[in-house]
């Protein structure tokens, strides 16, 4: 599979755009699912996914075949999700001043679906800790692989993973889910 991906990448770099379509077909759903764990909103997750594949294509010549192609895509997804959240937060800060006084702060609890509550809890978690928790749980990557994806040493991965799990637990307790 890795050789197959590398061949497709090489074909793309030789000017065969059709090869990239194969890669998009292969990985766009899994990248979307991952992005959806980082971004609560469905549309945001799709925007991140789109952005991941555009960035990946633009930087294809920098891809290091030492790593798996999808790991490289995950890494871009992590970075794009962080950047997306930063952008969104800055927009929200501005719009906070214009927020209606009728907004119900308890609106989150209106939805009884457990999945939504857990998603909300994940979103409350700072991205710094959300990343290792999500990546470890959903990709089941080793600490070494997470170290590559997050660009931090293994020791930091372990520490952030544990803190993230603790914080998520606290949020779920607070939401009376645990």
């Amino acid at each position: 599979m890795e050789n197959e991906d590398f061949k497709l990448v090489s074909d793309c770099l030789s000017g065969n755009g059709r090869s990239y379509e194969v890669l998009v077909e292969k990985y766009h759903k899994i990248i979307f699912r991952l992005a959806n764990k980082f971004a609560k909103d469905f549309d945001d997750a799709e925007e991140i996914t789109q952005s991941v594949f555009v960035k990946a294509y633009e930087n294809l010549k920098d891809y290091n075949p030492k790593y798996k192609f999808f790991s490289w895509l995950y890494r871009i997804t992590v970075n794009e999700s962080i950047n997306f959240e930063k952008r969104k937060k800055s927009v929200e800060k501005i719009s906070e001043n214009f927020r209606s006084v009728n907004d119900d702060p308890d609106k989150i609890y209106d939805n009884n679906a457990l999945s939504d509550v857990i998603t909300d809890a994940l979103m409350e978690l700072d991205m710094l800790y959300r990343m290792p928790v999500v990546l470890k749980h959903f990709l089941d990557y080793s600490y070494k692989e997470l170290s590559y994806l997050l660009g931090v040493p293994e020791k930091t991965v372990k520490s952030r993973l544990f803190t993230g799990r603790q914080l998520l637990k606290d949020i779920l307790v607070k939401k009376r889910v645990l």
Partner: peptide, 26 residues
Amino acid sequence: QTEHMLDKLEDIIPSPNLKERILNSI
């Protein structure tokens, strides 16, 4: 329990036209 909770997250499927949108932006 927290870890088990994460298993309860629904697997959301992207829009059918997401792939098309991605390819169109390349």
